[in-house]
Simulated assay, not measured.
Amino acid sequence: MRTVLTTVADLAVLLFAVTSMLSVGLTHSARQILGPLRDLWAVARALLANFVLVPLLALGIVRLWPLDRPLEAGLILVAMSAGAPFLIKLSEVARSDVALSATLLVLLLPVTVLYAPIAVPRVLPEAEVSAGALAVPLVLTMLLPLAAGLLLNSRWPDPARRWGPVARRVSTLALVLIVLATTLANIPTIVTLFAEGAIVPAMLVVAGAFVIGYLLGGRDRDARAVLGLGTSQRNIAAATVMATQGFVDNDTVVMVIVTSLTGFALLFPVAAVLRRRERVPAA
């Protein structure tokens, strides 16, 4: 049963990534997605938050709250992996700028591919990380669908606008499957990590990452929300690739999965709060 649930979760992650990025491309223009990258100061803040401050936060937390080495490695891998497709859904829930979320992903994904193989072995000397192994799934499941959506939108805008909401609904269904299948497949492990207190460092990393991103988001409300959510929702796909590729102990992968579930549990309520705050000025 666990094997079936794991397979369902893996397929749902693939479906979610593709349909989420495709929906953004179908409903936005390339100018909307790429334009914000001209703001070099905002780009610098996003890179600082995701590739300097969050990894340092994780390293500080595991020093204050020691874990077994495999669990510690899993948490650090998550902290060093940025750019997750779940940001699109979080931005939709928060009613923030979805196009800006895609912009952030376009920035963070290539940097993660270049950054992780260099930085991870310096922090975790036992790890072996391949840039190619990271790049292929991220490009095929995220950047390529986004590019396809943008192309379709530029050539055939009317059909693209009709299909965009369909892709968004499919991504929502896939997200539900991910959460249910992943949770059911890992209930014993989740219970064990709760009992051992290992879930606390994961919660601290997710919460602290949100605060870092939100504070560095600038004055614009949408930018603060997007950077806060984008910084706290780490790239679980990249972290999982590194965990399975570079570590023998399965507990490293388990910690990556548990941290991803922690992110779901914390960030969707945060997105809902941001949505309510957005309604207050309008009222």
Rank of each mutant, 00 (worst) to 15 (best):
L5W: 00
T6N: 14
T7N: 09
L11T: 01
V13S: 03
V18L: 14
T19G: 10
S20M: 15
S23F: 10
S23I: 02
S23L: 05
R31Y: 07
P36Y: 09
R38Q: 04
A46H: 03
L48N: 03
L57R: 09
P66Q: 03
L67H: 13
R69C: 00
R69F: 02
E72G: 02
A73D: 12
A73M: 00
G74L: 02
V78A: 05
G83H: 01
K89E: 10
S91T: 15
R95P: 05
S96C: 13
S96H: 05
L100K: 13
T103R: 09
L104K: 02
A116Q: 08
V129Q: 03
S130V: 05
A131L: 02
A131H: 02
V136C: 00
L143N: 01
A148W: 06
L152P: 00
P157T: 13
P165G: 12
P165T: 14
T172G: 12
L177K: 04
I178G: 08
N186Q: 14
P188T: 01
I190S: 04
T192D: 13
L193I: 09
E196F: 04
M203I: 06
L204Q: 07
A209N: 10
G218A: 07
D222K: 09
A223S: 11
V226L: 07
T231R: 13
S232V: 12
R234L: 11
A237F: 08
A239G: 11
A243P: 00
A243T: 01
Q245P: 03
G246W: 02
V248Y: 00
V248A: 15
D249N: 13
N250I: 01
N250D: 00
D251H: 10
V253W: 04
V253Y: 15
I257L: 11
S260N: 06
L266A: 10
V270Q: 00
A272Q: 11
A272T: 07
A272W: 12
R276F: 08
A283P: 05
